Amino acid sequence: MSAEATWRRLAAQADQAPAPLAAALAVTAGAATPVAGIAALLGRLLPPLWLEAGPLAAATLTEADAAAVLSDLEAITARNFEPSGLLGTWVGHRGFQMLASHRLAHRLWTGGQPALAMAVRSAAGYLGCDIHPAARIGCGIFLDHGLGLVVGETAVIEDDVSLWHGVTLGSTLMQAGADRHPKIRRGAVLGAGATLLGNIEVGAFAVVAAGSVVLADVPPRTTVAGHPARPKPRHRHPYGLGETP
């Protein structure tokens, strides 16, 4: 679904929201453009520890950033079976809100403003995650709950990845070179509390079971579990992604 279609659906749901939410939604989900609405959302979400996030986001976010945020909104609403629809995710889902905050921090980082990026990262910490602004995250991400997620500087998370609370994409601190964090390929699933360390690759549509410790590459379309994680004889993607090679 296009970003424009998602934005229209969100606005329509906001029009039907309870009266106590009306004023806040008018300037966020009811804004004239996605960039303006997301900037207003971040302005409300992020405490002004070092800066006011709303004006900074409005001047920084691009249409591509907004499209990525809306793709996350769709993915989280669908995979979370959210009964209150897009609007429920918009106002109350920490994982979605953390991803939106990271997209602002990442745009600042890649735009040569590392101090501002780190200030946004700091402000977003109350949402319960720690994502380095340099980490590269694709579109259509499902970050459930969001609490306890840690993503290192050189980590890569491709499109359609699903992550649960307590996932760590970290470094072993024993690898030479600057590229020291995991690469999570398209459609992979990382269960709650999974720890992945080092410059390893989790292949497309692979599944890492909850609580696993992964220290080596995981082939595509493979399920691994345990400490250390080992392949299981059967693989089934929870959302049916990648079932047909």
Rank of each mutant, 00 (worst) to 15 (best):
A5S: 10
T6G: 03
P18N: 05
P18L: 03
A19F: 01
P20R: 07
L21Y: 09
A23W: 09
V27Q: 13
V27W: 08
V27A: 11
A29P: 15
A29F: 04
G30D: 12
T33F: 04
V35Q: 05
A36N: 03
G37V: 06
A39M: 01
A39L: 02
L42Y: 10
G43L: 12
R44K: 14
P48R: 09
E52F: 10
G54K: 00
A58I: 02
A59K: 06
L61I: 10
A64Y: 05
D65E: 12
A66T: 13
A68Y: 10
A68Q: 12
S71E: 05
L73E: 02
A75L: 14
N80Y: 01
N80P: 00
S84R: 14
H93V: 11
H93I: 11
F96L: 12
Q97T: 07
R107N: 04
L108K: 09
W109P: 00
G112Q: 03
G112D: 05
Q113D: 15
A115S: 13
V120K: 06
G125M: 12
Y126S: 10
L127G: 08
C129H: 11
I131L: 13
H132Y: 04
A134H: 06
I141A: 02
D144P: 00
H145L: 14
G146I: 14
G152T: 13
E153F: 05
E158K: 08
S162L: 11
L163N: 03
H165R: 11
S171D: 09
T172I: 11
M174A: 12
G177L: 08
D179A: 07
D179C: 07
H181S: 03
L190M: 14
G193N: 07
V202N: 07
G203T: 11
A206E: 03
G211K: 06
G211N: 02
V213Y: 04
D217W: 00
D217C: 09
P219M: 03
V224P: 04
R230P: 11
K232S: 13
P233V: 11
H235T: 12
R236P: 00
L241V: 04
